[in-house]
Design a protein around this nucleic acid. Structure first.
Lengths: 151, 151
DNA sequence: TCTTTTCCTATCGGAGCAGTAGGAATTAAC
DNA sequence: GTTAATTCCTACTGCTCCGATAGGAAAAGA
């Protein structure tokens, strides 16, 4: 099973956007620096997030990105699908596993059924967590960190 | 997200073993012909299944493969993990996402948490279906097919 | 006009996967 | 004991996809 790194970058990027307070848009450069991944690559991911309607952007000097909706309305599954495309199983097309009509063999369709179940459960898992949930967890983590420091 | 074709081949192979009645071992060639995939490749998959203790083999003329346990004790998740290795998310290691100590950044660990949840739900889904379940579904399907034919 | 930033398109290098190949080891049949 | 059938081991190949890079156009503020 495979989730791409893009998905990981994507989640961290929107999380960064959500946690960066202030009304000014956040520049890609700032995110790249904070999270430590390559600017040019992050641009692609932000572009995908924008086309999916999850973030919006302002061009030009002092431009940047901001969330297009409240964090509570952005589900992690949305982020993943925005950057990775629809989740497919198996990812690589296997023409060999289909007969002439493009249909599956009888055993093949049973396997297909299993894939459907897995896909559904993954989506359910990803969609029950929103960006707001992650923000909450991030704040809890930070709080704990500060507490530890003061002992 | 990604599942390899090997997993698909693997499931179909053990399903073939389970549905082929008779006490004689089933030859790889026979499975390859029935399911329509390449013999040499199937050999690799059967080898992995054997090393995982899911099938056993007899060498030499009239040799072949058989299930090592009753179908009701073989979970689909076992098959997948046998041929694909442990499911990892994301699959490709991204050193960039770890800091000097090999640890994740704070945001990174939150994402890690999400991956853990997904992984758990996938395993749960894969493991609640056994090979015996698939056999049952296969028979139901066949029954329906025959019924349709007689109308 | 100059700088900063997003945005679009194209390309590259490496990794991993589906599939192939050769041949050794083992067993049955004759 | 020779031959045929079959599993088994190791290595290789070709291709696709992904992470990452690059160049430069478009937009907006100074």
């Amino acid at each position: 099973m495979y989730f791409s790194a893009k998905g990981e970058y994507g989640i961290m990027a929107v999380l960064d956007l959500a946690l960066t307070k202030g009304s000014a848009p956040v520049q890609a450069k700032a995110i790249a620096d904070r999270q430590g991944f390559p600017l040019r690559f992050l641009e692609h991911i932000l572009s995908a997030l924008k086309h999916a309607g999850l973030v919006e952007s302002e061009r030009g000097a002092h431009g940047g990105y901001r969330l297009a909706k409240p964090a509570s309305e952005i589900r992690i599954g949305d982020v993943i699908q925005a950057v990775d495309g629809p989740i497919a199983m198996p990812a690589r097309a296997l023409p060999r596993l289909r007969n002439g009509n493009g249909h599956r063999t009888s055993h093949g369709s049973l396997v297909q059924g299993v894939w459907e179940e897995v896909k559904a459960s993954v989506l359910e898992t990803l969609n029950r967590t929103t960006l707001a949930d992650l923000c909450r967890r991030a704040r809890d983590l930070e709080e704990k960190r500060v507490l530890m420091y003061h002992i």
